[in-house]
């Protein structure tokens, strides 16, 4: 189960809507071992593509070092699908390299409704999980 604040979900949706029709991507960092997403980090989709995303490699190094320095980890890795459902594609599964992360997918294919779903992807096996809204916002 992913427990996350409404405010963070709204930030993910806003990013996905802003970059539509290209795929948007990013991470939500949290204290290592806590499983608690807290710090929203929008990433550049280096592919700038409606069908593919890849974190910009230099930005990824900077953000990963920052997480290391703050004793954080990528609790949530999010990206959008802009013409298909919010479910991991074969490509998503083959490149998923963070077995402890929650892969949050949002679909912006409908203009006024955004589908948001969360999955774990471990050794090529996709498991959907419940998204539980945390009580308050995150400062």
């Amino acid at each position: 189960m992913l427990t996350i604040s409404r405010a963070l979900i709204d930030q993910v949706i806003a990013h996905a809507r802003a970059d539509h029709p290209d795929e948007a991507c990013g991470v939500i960092a949290g204290p290592a071992g806590s499983d608690r997403p807290e710090r929203f980090v929008a990433m550049t989709n280096a592919e700038r593509s409606p069908t593919f995303y890849r974190f910009d490699s230099m930005e990824q190094l900077r953000v990963w070092r920052e997480m290391d320095d703050r004793d954080e980890e990528p609790v949530v890795i999010y990206h959008s699908h802009t013409a298909t459902e919010a479910y991991p594609s074969r490509t998503d599964i083959s490149y998923a390299m963070e077995p402890s992360a929650h892969y949050l997918l949002v679909s912006t294919r409908e203009p006024d409704e955004t589908e948001v779903r969360s999955f774990t992807i471990v050794d090529g096996v996709v498991t959907e999980e419940q998204v539980q809204l945390a009580g308050g916002g995150v400062e």
């Binding site: 593509s49 890849r54 990963w64 013409a83 490509t91 490149y95 963070e98």
Partner: peptide, 27 residues
């Protein structure tokens, strides 16, 4: 990749960091 890939020169005191790319797509 900007330094010659596998032929990039390295020396004592350098730090090499390996990170899997974070990538995917709709297909």
């Amino acid at each position: 990749r900007f330094l010659g890939g596998l032929s990039a020169p390295v020396k004592d005191g350098d730090t090499v960091t390996v990170l899997p790319a974070v990538a995917g797509g709709m297909r």
